[in-house]
């Protein structure tokens, strides 16, 4: 009884796999397209918006992988709950870590002017250093 139902379900399973593969491919292509569109973009707000869109696409990809490939969508509802509910911890985990990271940066920029200066002007020096490094490498190769 149970068996036939399971088997039937898996006959339809192949179609589902193909469907999900196509969805994942399309989502990845959109992500890549957004990534290309972001290149060289100066408008910081728009960049941020695109990054947000990419994160949403990432989460929907995760949903399809977990839901269909890992078959979670077809499990008992309570099992789904035990997997999904603890993941809500991540909201606070991510928010507070990033918030404090950002605050740490602001503190450093406010109270450590030397650091601030270092991180805004030292570029050319590093460029030279890089060239020297590559020169050295070339020498080493020679």
């Amino acid at each position: 009884m149970e068996h036939t139902a399971v088997a039937e379900h898996h006959e339809g399973g192949k179609k589902e796999v193909i469907r999900v593969t196509i969805i994942l491919t399309v989502l990845t292509i959109i992500e890549l397209a957004l990534g290309f569109a972001m290149m060289g973009m100066e408008n910081q707000r728009l960049r941020l918006a695109i990054k947000g869109a990419i994160v949403i696409l990432m989460l929907s990809k995760a949903f399809y992988i977990v839901g269909y490939f890992m078959h979670l969508k077809h499990e008992v509802k309570n099992l789904i709950m035990t997997i999904v509910v603890p993941l809500f911890i991540f909201f606070w985990f991510i928010f507070s870590f990033l918030y404090d990271g950002n605050s740490f940066k602001n503190l450093k920029n406010t109270y450590d002017p030397y650091k601030k200066e270092l991180s805004t002007t030292k570029a050319e020096k590093k460029e030279e250093a890089k060239e020297i490094k590559t020169d050295e490498k070339k020498k080493a190769v020679d």
């Binding site: 507070s96 918030y99 404090d100 605050s103 740490f104 503190l107």
Partner: peptide, 11 residues
């Protein structure tokens, strides 16, 4: 540790 005060108050 210099935790952000706003964050600290939530904690």
């Amino acid at each position: 540790t210099g935790l952000n005060p706003f964050l600290g108050s939530i904690f």
